Simulated assay, not measured.
Amino acid sequence: MTDTPPHARLTAALSEDMAAVGDLIRDRMASENAPRIPEVTAHLVEAGGKRVRPLMTVACARMCGYEGTDHIKLAATVEFIHTATLLHDDVVDESRQRRGRPTANLLWDNQSSVLVGDYLFARSFQLMVETGSLRVLDILSGAAATIAEGEVLQLTAARNLATTEETYLKVVRGKTAALFEAAAQVGGVVAGVPDAQEQALARFGDALGVSFQIMDDWLDYGGAGDGIGKNLGDDFREGKLTLPVIRALARSDDAERAFWRDALERGKSEDLDRARTILDRHGTLEETRVEALAWRDRARAALAELPASDLREMLGDLADYVVARAL
């Protein structure tokens, strides 16, 4: 890879398309009757995010030879779904920081965040329908439902020390990987690729999303607070059973389990340093990083089933990038 991050190279290679996506997002987030909607939406949309998910849709469509304009609508759809879920997640998690800035629910209120999120979901469905493709509608609406399922599953699993790796993976595939998968897959669908290539794109997006989320969970304990878009230890304080914790729990002695019970089940999560010490003792942070790399390899293997091109190479580099730093 060059010194320029792959998402930046993709954005430069697809600059006209991504500019059109930005214009469409700004146009469709407008509201004549409720000015708070564009205010709240712009707080997130214009916050300097890398727009990796819509970038994937545009890149996959162009990689597959698409020459029309519906991929612009689909990319905007993906970004609206993503932004809506962020607005809702911050309310559920009572978050105070997102992408290094105060969250919308902190600046405005929970009601505004929830209702603006609902508005963006509605806008996303309008954009889906405009493509005239029932297949696209099926994939993206299915992803929206799966994301909600993943979030509810995470909510019910929080502070439950009996949470298994199987449940954890279901949460990850739901709340994060589902949109990565759909973002890549619809790019192939709009381009009219054969079913085998469409499924390869779906596997690429799924594996990339899982890798991304596992690495994000590693960063919550092992990364630096700057640059990950949230406070270090957020998952710990919220009682989330992520992969490094699940594996450490399976190996913990009675004293360590008592600590996890107090910290996660009872919400007494003041001692992040001790949690990190236990994770290091059992080697689960390093195992988590290795697991993220394994999913990265699956993403690259799926991508290899598609015709070689510069865009394919950059998407492969993107898979490497997600395990090198947070997006």
Rank of each mutant, 00 (worst) to 15 (best):
A202V: 10
D262M: 04
A144V: 06
K240Y: 02
G174Q: 02
L219T: 00
E198V: 05
A275P: 03
L155C: 09
G150A: 09
D206W: 13
E198S: 15
I147C: 00
Q213W: 11
R203Y: 06
E270C: 03
V245I: 14
R173P: 10
A196L: 09
G225F: 10
R247Y: 08
T176K: 03
A178H: 02
V171I: 15
T146Q: 14
G227F: 14
L243M: 12
L243Q: 02
A248L: 01
L249H: 02
A250D: 14
Y221Q: 03
D273P: 07
K170H: 14
G267R: 10
T167H: 04
Q213A: 02
A145W: 15
G150N: 13
N231W: 12
K240E: 01
I246C: 12
L249S: 00
G223N: 07
L272H: 14
V193W: 05
G225H: 02
R257N: 08
L201E: 10
G205F: 07
A162I: 05
Y168G: 11
G225L: 10
V171Q: 12
E270K: 10
R274E: 03
F259H: 13
N231I: 00
G229E: 03
S252Y: 07
T242E: 05
T164Q: 10
K175F: 13
E256N: 08
L241K: 04
R257H: 13
K230D: 08
T156W: 07
A196T: 15
G205K: 13
F212G: 01
G142N: 14
L272E: 05
K175N: 06
G205P: 13
T242S: 11
Y168R: 05
R237H: 11
T167G: 03
I214L: 15
G239S: 08
L208D: 09
E181L: 09
L169V: 11
